[in-house]
Amino acid sequence: MALDIAVLVSVGRHPASARNRRAVLDARALELALNVPGANIHLIHAGDADEPALREYLGMGVERLSVLGVPAHADVLPVLVAHLKALRPALVLCGAAAEQGAGSGELPYRLAAALGMPIVPAVAGFELHGGRAQLAQALPRGRRRGVEAALPVLLSVDRAAPEPRQSAYARAQRGQIERIAVPAAPLWQPPGEEQPARKRPKRLKLISGSGAERMRAAQGAAASAGKGQLLVQPEPAAAAQAIYDYLLSEGILRG
């Protein structure tokens, strides 16, 4: 029996041009699904079926995309829950957060809670054996943690997952978009007053202590901006020591 995998995809948005495209993380989720041999992939989107960017997912080699027809800015949770409850997939894959709309990254968790599935975030890869999923979870600094879960399970994918394959134009055009009528969904409310994101200055290194210390730190920081320490023709041992000390002091190496 083929394994049913539901892949939830959204419409992404390019950070430089603000143009719609396939979402980076959702495409990675689909890539993971496409690498499961013999899987029966259900590609699902809740939103506008006429959005051209959706075809980019079809271009990755999926024949059909099911679109749950809800208007823009609708809360997609109820329709997704209803659809997935009927579908009963063994795996649900999605990106960690959407690139537009709230994009708070809460949806996968709400979905998992509503479906009664466990959820594992930051999945970089997985294998399936005997009804269980062996997952590789991406930790910071390139580390990976093994996590095991029984199916069905919901996996959310971040940038550590393998890069998505190229979307081919012809496959994108030939793929089918299946429109599924769903009951009216409530509108999503922004969690507060929306303003364009403001770039926040990075905090300078915190110096607590006397005024003189803070002054000296501030002067030092200004003087050292773009200018570091220089050792000219040191003995190799001294050079090695200098590098070692620097790595230690910056916490790159643990002594």
Binding site: G12, R13, P15, Q100, A102, G103, P190, P191
Partner: peptide, 12 residues
């Protein structure tokens, strides 16, 4: 809070 793909701040 930040959302909308990093383009919006939500004041609340």
């Amino acid at each position: 809070a930040r959302g909308n793909g990093g383009r919006s701040d939500y004041h609340m």
